[in-house]
Amino acid sequence: PAHPYDRLKTTSTDPVSDIDVTRREAYLSSEEFKEKFGMTKEAFYKLPKWKQNKFKMAVQLF
C-alpha cells in the first residue's frame, strides 16, 4: 500500500511503522514518486544503487 511522503521521510514526526526502511521510496504512490524524484519508479530502479541512494538522500528517504 502507498503511504504519504510526509510519513515516509526520515525526518517524519509521524513515521509509518512496519515498512522496509531500506526501501522507503517503494511505498510512495506513482504520482508522488514522480513528483519527488522526477522519474518513474521503473526508471529509478534501473539506475545504479549508488545513484538511487544519492536521489533518496536528496529527498530524505535514506
Rank of each mutant, 00 (worst) to 15 (best):
P1K: 14
P1M: 14
P1E: 13
P1C: 15
P1R: 11
A2I: 15
A2G: 10
A2Y: 15
A2W: 15
A2K: 15
A2H: 15
H3G: 03
H3Q: 07
P4A: 10
P4F: 04
P4M: 06
P4Y: 08
P4R: 06
P4C: 14
Y5D: 05
D6Q: 01
R7F: 07
R7C: 14
R7M: 06
R7E: 07
R7V: 08
L8W: 05
L8C: 14
L8F: 05
L8D: 05
L8I: 08
K9F: 10
K9T: 13
K9R: 06
T10L: 10
T10N: 14
T11G: 10
T11A: 04
T11M: 04
T11I: 04
T11P: 05
T11R: 02
T11S: 11
T11D: 14
S12R: 03
S12Q: 04
S12D: 08
T13W: 07
T13M: 11
T13P: 08
T13V: 11
D14H: 10
D14Q: 06
D14F: 07
D14N: 13
D14R: 04
D14E: 06
D14V: 03
P15N: 05
P15F: 02
P15L: 08
V16S: 03
V16F: 07
V16P: 06
V16E: 04
V16G: 04
V16K: 03
S17E: 13
S17V: 13
S17W: 13
D18Q: 05
D18V: 06
D18R: 05
D18F: 08
D18W: 04
I19R: 02
I19V: 08
I19H: 02
I19M: 02
D20I: 05
D20K: 04
V21M: 08
V21Q: 11
V21W: 09
V21C: 12
V21R: 08
V21K: 07
V21T: 11
T22K: 09
T22C: 14
T22D: 08
T22P: 03
R23K: 12
R23A: 04
R23M: 12
R24C: 12
R24E: 02
E25C: 12
A26I: 10
Y27P: 06
Y27M: 03
Y27T: 04
Y27D: 04
Y27Q: 04
L28S: 02
L28W: 03
L28A: 01
S29A: 05
S30E: 14
S30Q: 12
S30D: 15
E31V: 10
E31S: 14
E31Q: 12
E31C: 10
E31G: 09
E32Q: 09
E32K: 02
E32L: 02
E32F: 08
E32D: 12
F33T: 01
F33C: 06
K34P: 04
K34V: 13
K34E: 14
K34T: 12
K34W: 15
K34D: 08
E35D: 12
K36D: 01
K36R: 12
F37W: 02
F37I: 02
F37E: 00
G38M: 09
G38I: 02
G38K: 11
M39L: 03
M39D: 00
M39Y: 02
M39T: 01
M39F: 04
T40Y: 03
T40W: 04
T40I: 04
T40S: 12
K41P: 07
K41I: 10
E42W: 10
E42H: 09
A43M: 13
A43V: 12
A43I: 11
F44D: 00
F44H: 00
F44N: 00
F44V: 00
Y45H: 02
Y45M: 03
Y45P: 00
Y45G: 03
K46T: 11
L47H: 02
L47P: 00
P48F: 11
P48L: 00
P48G: 00
K49E: 08
K49M: 12
W50N: 02
W50K: 04
K51A: 14
K51C: 15
K51V: 14
K51D: 08
K51Y: 10
K51T: 12
Q52D: 00
Q52S: 01
Q52L: 01
Q52M: 01
Q52G: 00
N53L: 12
N53M: 13
N53I: 14
N53T: 12
N53F: 09
N53P: 01
K54R: 13
K54E: 14
K54F: 13
K54Q: 14
K54H: 09
K54L: 14
K54A: 12
K54Y: 13
F55G: 00
F55S: 05
F55Y: 14
K56E: 02
K56A: 03
K56W: 11
K56Q: 01
K56R: 11
M57N: 05
M57C: 14
M57F: 07
M57A: 08
M57L: 12
M57T: 06
M57G: 02
A58R: 12
A58H: 10
A58G: 05
A58N: 09
A58P: 00
V59K: 07
V59Y: 12
V59G: 01
V59S: 05
Q60F: 14
Q60P: 08
Q60W: 10
Q60R: 09
Q60S: 10
L61T: 01
L61H: 08
L61D: 07
L61Q: 04
L61V: 05
L61F: 06
F62D: 15
F62M: 14
F62W: 14
